[in-house]
């Protein structure tokens, strides 16, 4: 009876021997098989035979390849793979940290400024300059000045010349702005 039980146990070990070798059985099962192995010569032999085959295969000399040829193959593969995907160098960790901190701060500041805009010169609505109107204003100012006694001595033609000069200069500015 004991012998039959033992045989069944040995048959089970034959099924589980690989998982036992991989240590992939539950702790209790592992302990149970270790216990069994201490007593069972037949299972010890099974285990030894497997290890002997594996050891014998390990001792078979590896297939020899020409080292230069191998290096060439690796280089060839390196060249082939280099042409298939572009290398993206890694981002240094410091930039990742800075990016992680600064970006949310910048986003928060922008959001705050959108809600509470700061009144600077940039916020004023500048009306487009009307050069014609400006010239007219300058013209009328000059006319007013020419009527003044102090300036009247310079004569009409001098005022006209100055006005013309001013008009040309404003036109130049206007053209330059258009360009």
């Amino acid at each position: 009876m004991i012998s039959t039980n033992n045989e069944k146990l040995c048959e089970r070990f034959d099924d589980e021997i690989w998982l036992y070798l991989d240590g992939e059985l539950a702790k209790t099962e592992m302990a149970s098989w270790e216990n069994h192995l201490k007593k069972c010569a037949s299972c010890q032999k099974r285990l030894l035979e497997i290890k002997s085959v594996e050891l014998a295969y390990k001792n078979v000399p590896a297939v020899k390849f020409d080292a230069k040829q191998l290096q060439k193959q690796i280089s060839r593969a390196e060249n082939t793979v280099a042409s298939t995907r572009r290398y993206q160098p890694p981002v240094p960790p410091i930039f990742k940290v800075l990016g992680g901190i600064l970006l949310p701060i910048a986003a928060a500041v922008m959001f705050y400024l959108r809600l509470h805009p700061v009144e600077t010169e940039q916020n004023y609505n500048w009306e487009p300059i009307n050069f014609q109107q400006t010239i007219t204003e300058i013209d009328s100012s000059l006319n007013a000045l020419s009527s003044d006694l102090l300036w009247a001595e310079t004569g009409e033609s001098a005022w006209d010349e100055m006005r013309m000069d001013l008009e040309y200069r404003i036109e130049d500015i206007s053209e330059a702005l258009k360009e």
Partner: peptide, 17 residues
């Protein structure tokens, strides 16, 4: 990331096997 030099170093370890 696509570094071919790292690849040849990685593979060199396994090539014989």
């Amino acid at each position: 990331m696509g570094d071919p030099h790292a690849y040849s170093r990685l593979i060199a370890h396994y090539q014989q096997n």
